[in-house]
Design a protein around this nucleic acid. Structure first.
Lengths: 211, 211
DNA sequence: GCCAATAATGAGACTAATGTCAATATTGAG
DNA sequence: CTCAATATTGACATTAGTCTCATTATTGGC
């Protein structure tokens, strides 16, 4: 069946789509700032004040407070996934170092995101974010290739994820040394079985690789 | 100057002191359960319902919700301090293993406490709890005596505290293997520089030592 | 620029929580 | 057992938050 050859406009659909997108972005960004500041107990009132829109506008975008929280968690996970994205690097150890360094440097660069991650990771919940999901694959491959002496078992994941989270926390607190990300990557590599010299080398390289 | 020889009753002071103590304990314990369940957004209404006292009674004990949260944090820190208390053991590595094992086993035995710790450790705040405070001393001594190859620097503390917290989290989630505490202690010891064999031995011993 | 479609507004109904207090019940020393 | 001291109660005033909706303002395709 031949389709009629029309313009086939995909995007617009509605009249005010431009403003709609802008307002939604405002609400999400304001929501992230408020979540970073106040935690999951944030109020709709806080968010609309921060976003500088009226109370009623909020409910044009989210059915309730809970739906906003889900959107914020989704948004943050997206940022995490982007930061931890696999690079086309052969050696799994090097790849793991790069991903970990990128997550830590991203946390330093975007404090709001970092605070949100800490808020969402505090305890199991529907809006939880699990760092270790993004490590499992690299760990498994590194183990298979004999680069790591430990598989992607719970204890190893806990150790690395815990180290990353505590490092982020320390950075957010303003108590981290300048080289905290590099130290953390180095310790993570050692925990996975690399010897001290190689861990130091890969960590330095990984941090340096982020322009 | 001679003191008059009187009974010198220290404790009672007021009429209803017995009931007072009991009610306070009820409120604290109810508060811990609610905090474990609902987090820092807990309401006074929740707590008094859980404690089975009237709303007004709450305000005989705490000026406001915030003061309860502080009391709960203090209570939890006390339990942590007790669990992490130094044993009269010479070797700092062994002592550290014992304290860490005791904290983890305590978390397993008292799930409410474990959940509260996770809630209070999520992010810096007035009601925050910092695990690493309780490790610093052992780490410093272990390093001084050449047992650990790392001092009580931030990165080491982050690594060990992160591992302990993630392990507690996994236990609370019901996703931990039976040997999670022992694994965690072993990994912590290795992170501090002990070789694999000794770390395994000390970890096994430390976990076994808790009747 | 027009104007139908669409988004934004904010007053207000409703709900839930906080903190107060006069009245009532309980405690325990003598 | 008595009763003054003390603790408990729950109704209530207040505050804060959520969500709705009739009205007003804005958008953007033509």
């Amino acid at each position: 069946m031949l389709l009629p050859v029309t313009k086939e406009r995909r995007e617009p659909r509605t009249r005010g789509y431009r403003k709609k997108e802008r307002t939604r972005r405002q609400l999400i960004e304001a929501g992230l700032r408020v979540l970073a500041e106040k935690g999951q107990g944030l109020t709709v009132s806080d968010v609309v004040a921060e976003a500088e829109v009226s109370n009623g506008t909020f409910y044009n975008y989210f059915t309730d407070r809970e739906e906003l929280l889900e959107a914020l968690a989704a948004q943050s996970v997206l940022a995490l996934a982007a930061a931890a994205a696999k690079e086309p690097v052969e050696d799994p150890a090097r790849r793991f170092a790069l991903a970990t360094a990128r997550v830590l440097l991203h946390a330093r660069a975007d404090e709001t995101w970092a605070r949100v991650m800490l808020r969402l990771t505090s305890l199991r919940s529907r809006t939880d974010v699990d760092m270790s999901r993004y490590m499992r694959e690299d760990l498994a491959e590194g183990f298979a290739q004999g680069r790591f002496d430990t598989g992607p078992d719970d204890a190893a994941l806990d150790q690395v994820a815990g180290l990353v989270l505590m490092t982020i926390r320390r950075m957010v607190d303003g108590k981290a040394r300048r080289d905290a990300p590099q130290q953390a990557v180095q310790r993570a590599l050692r925990a996975l079985g690399l010897d001290a010299a190689e861990a130091a080398e890969l960590a330095a390289e990984a941090v340096a690789a982020q322009s």
